[in-house]
C-alpha cells in the first residue's frame, strides 16, 4: 500500500532524475555558501594568493570604516520607499478589477510594463529625467519657482531618493499583477453581501478587498523587502560606476561588488555578503512567524 503514491519502485531511476540538478546545486550553491563563510574570515593578496585566517577582522574593519553602517542605512531607506508601492498597487488593482470596468486589460498592460523593462536600458531615460541641467524634474521644479533645484544623481541624499523612485516605478508591475491575480480569487458574493449591508465602495475596499488580499499583500511585502535588501541594478544603472556621490549612496550589494570585484578585497566582500544573508534570513524568519498571525486564508 505504501507504494501507491509513487508508482515507480525505488532503484536507480530517482537518481537519474535528480542527479544532474543535485550535482549542479552542490557545485554552484552548497560549496560556495560554505566557501564564502570561510572567505569572510580570511584575507588574501591582490590575486587571491596567501590566504590567511584573520577571524572577524573583516567585519570589524567594515564597521570601523563606517562603510557598513552607511550601506545598511541606504539599503533600508531604499527598501522603505519601494515598499510604498505595495499599498499603491493594492489600490490600483482593486480599481482595475472593478466588475464591468471598461479598458481593464489596457490598464493592466500599462501598469505591468515596467516589470519587463531591462533596468540598465530604462534607467538611461531616468538619467535624462533626473539630469540637473535639462532634466524634466528640474525644469518642472523651476517652473514652480524652485530655483535651488538639486543635481539629483550626484548629490548624496537626493541620489538615493532618485534611485528609490526608479525602484518604486520598477516594482509596481509585479505588485499589480500579483494583486490582480489575488482579487480574481475573491468570490463576488462577498461584495454583493457587503453592498446589501449598505457598504459603499470605500467600505467594501477595507472590509472585503484588503482582508481577502492579505496573502498577496504579505507575499509582496516579503518579496519587495528581500529585493530591496539586494538593491544593485537600479543604483548601478542610474548613477554609474564613477559617480562622486556613490560612497555615500551605495547599498550593501554595491559595497559587496566594489570590495569584491573593483578593489579585489574578497575577504571583506564575503563579509558583506554574510551581512546581506543575515538580513534576508531575518525577513524569512518574520515571514514564517507572521504568516500565521496576519494572513487570512479563504
Amino acid at each position: 500500500m505504501a507504494r501507491r503514491r509513487g508508482p515507480h519502485r525505488a532503484g536507480a531511476w530517482p537518481w537519474v532524475f535528480i542527479g544532474p540538478l543535485l550535482a549542479g546545486v552542490a557545485v554552484f550553491y552548497y560549496y560556495p555558501i560554505v566557501s564564502n563563510a570561510w572567505t569572510s574570515l580570511t584575507q588574501s593578496g591582490a590575486f587571491g594568493t596567501n590566504q590567511r585566517f584573520v577571524g572577524l577582522d573583516n567585519y570589524a574593519g567594515l564597521v570601523d570604516r563606517g562603510d557598513l553602517g552607511t550601506a545598511v542605512l541606504n539599503t533600508l531607506g531604499y527598501t522603505l520607499i519601494v515598499l510604498l508601492g505595495v499599498p499603491l498597487s493594492v489600490m490600483v488593482a482593486a480599481m482595475i478589477e472593478l466588475p464591468g470596468l471598461r479598458f481593464a486589460p489596457l490598464y493592466r498592460a500599462l501598469f505591468f510594463m515596467p516589470y519587463l523593462a531591462m533596468p540598465m536600458a530604462i534607467a538611461q531615460v531616468f538619467r535624462l529625467v533626473f539630469n540637473g541641467d535639462f532634466g524634466l524634474v528640474n525644469q518642472g521644479l523651476r517652473a514652480l519657482g524652485v530655483n535651488a533645484s538639486p543635481y539629483w544623481l550626484t548629490t548624496p541624499g537626493f541620489a538615493l531618493v532618485a534611485v528609490a523612485l526608479f525602484g518604486l516605478w520598477s516594482s509596481i508591475g509585479f505588485n499589480v499583477i500579483i494583486c490582480c491575480a489575488g482579487l480574481k480569487g475573491v468570490p463576488r458574493e462577498l461584495y454583493e453581501a457587503a453592498s446589501l449591508d449598505g457598504a459603499g465602495p470605500v467600505r467594501q475596499f477595507w472590509a472585503v478587498t484588503v482582508p481577502m488580499l492579505t496573502p498577496s499583500i504579505f507575499f509582496l511585502t516579503v518579496m519587495q523587502t528581500i529585493a530591496g535588501f539586494q538593491l544593485f541594478d537600479a543604483l548601478f544603472a542610474l548613477m554609474g560606476a564613477n559617480n562622486p556621490a556613490m560612497p555615500q549612496t551605495r547599498s550593501l550589494v554595491y559595497l559587496f561588488y566594489q570590495l569584491g570585484f573593483v578593489v579585489n578585497d574578497r575577504g571583506s566582500a564575503a563579509a558583506v555578503a554574510m551581512v546581506i544573508l543575515v538580513f534576508v534570513a531575518a525577513v524569512t524568519a518574520v515571514q514564517f512567524w507572521g504568516q500565521r498571525r496576519w494572513v487570512t486564508y479563504a
Partner: peptide
C-alpha cells in the same frame, strides 16, 4: 531531506554565492 536542503537555497541571497562561483 534533499528537498528541504534544496529549498534552503531560496532563503540565501545570491551575493553569498558569487565570490566562490567566480572562483569556479
Amino acid at each position: 531531506v534533499l528537498f528541504g536542503l534544496l529549498l534552503a537555497i531560496l532563503m540565501i541571497p545570491s551575493q553569498a554565492y558569487i565570490i566562490p562561483q567566480y572562483g569556479i
